[in-house]
């Protein structure tokens, strides 16, 4: 069985997939443009997520989007953005990008004080741009560049590397540390952030629905392209051009 057929098999059983993944050698994978040996599992999870999204998550996000005035939305986004700057400082430092880490630390200090606990993004107004980094990107910079794609319900698209990165990100995320104070507060904050992020994606729903021949493949390839862009801080090397 060639790797190609293996990768393309839409409804292969999980056992077959795991066996297939073990058979596939590194070189067979390298010939494939997309690193997705768990495609059967991923497509099943994608379908579960689409179902959850349609019946529950998207309607809640739409209601939230409808009732929340723009200044409040901006405040919520800025608040969680400020929390994320903790992660950015940490991961910029781990990647040796010390000047970026310094800027993000400055952002954190300014927004947490003058910006009233992060409700206003004063630092951006002052021209201090955020450098978005997470532990998945740090692992990539440390050498784990290529990683198999995984799709999780609720969490959405990831790779094996980024799934590990996410676990570390949760451990270093101040929102989750609210557990020391109050479980209810923490849960409310995590839920609010989840719905806020989903709501911010509402305008792109129709774009993806109408653009994709195969929505799963479109979402997967978009995620992998976006991560590559993030890992190279916005300027990834160009892929070869067939016309050249």
């Amino acid at each position: 069985m060639t790797g190609e057929i293996m990768m393309r098999k839409r409804r292969a059983g999980l056992a077959g997939l795991i066996a297939g993944a073990l058979i596939l050698s590194g070189s067979a994978l390298a010939q494939q443009p997309v690193n997705d040996p768990f495609e059967g599992f991923n497509r099943a999870m994608f379908a579960v997520n689409e179902g959850l999204d349609t019946v529950a998550i998207k309607p809640i996000a739409q209601a939230y989007d409808f009732v929340t005035p723009l200044p409040v939305r901006a405040g919520v986004g800025d608040f969680f953005g400020n929390v994320l700057d903790v992660r950015n400082v940490l991961n910029n430092t781990l990647q040796g990008k010390l000047s970026d880490a310094g800027v993000d630390l400055g952002r954190l200090l300014i927004n947490s004080t003058i910006g009233i606990f992060g409700l206003f993004d004063v630092a951006s107004e002052l021209g201090l741009q955020r450098h978005d980094e997470d532990f998945g990107q740090t692992l990539a910079v440390w050498g784990w560049e290529d990683s198999s794609f995984l799709f999780w319900p609720l969490v959405g698209p990831r790779t094996v590397r980024d799934t590990g990165g996410l676990i570390v990100d949760i451990y270093t995320d101040p929102t989750w540390y609210m557990i020391n104070k109050s479980v209810a507060t923490r849960n409310s904050l995590v839920a609010l952030r989840f719905i806020d992020v989903r709501a911010s994606l509402l305008p792109s729903d129709k774009v993806v629905d109408e653009a994709a021949l195969d929505k799963y493949a479109y979402v997967r390839d978009a995620y992998l392209q976006r991560r590559r862009n993030q890992i190279f801080d916005g300027s990834p090397p160009r892929l070869e051009d067939v016309l050249d």
């Binding site: 190609e4 393309r8 443009p33 997309v34 653009a211 994709a212 021949l213 195969d214 493949a217 479109y218 390839d221 978009a222 392209q225 976006r226 590559r228 862009n229 993030q230 916005g234 990834p236 892929l239």
Partner: peptide, 21 residues
Amino acid sequence: VSVAGISLVTNYRDQFGHEVR
């Protein structure tokens, strides 16, 4: 054209390759 690092063009490569096969 790429949006957030996602090329609206090359994002089709795998889907198109699948149809050609």
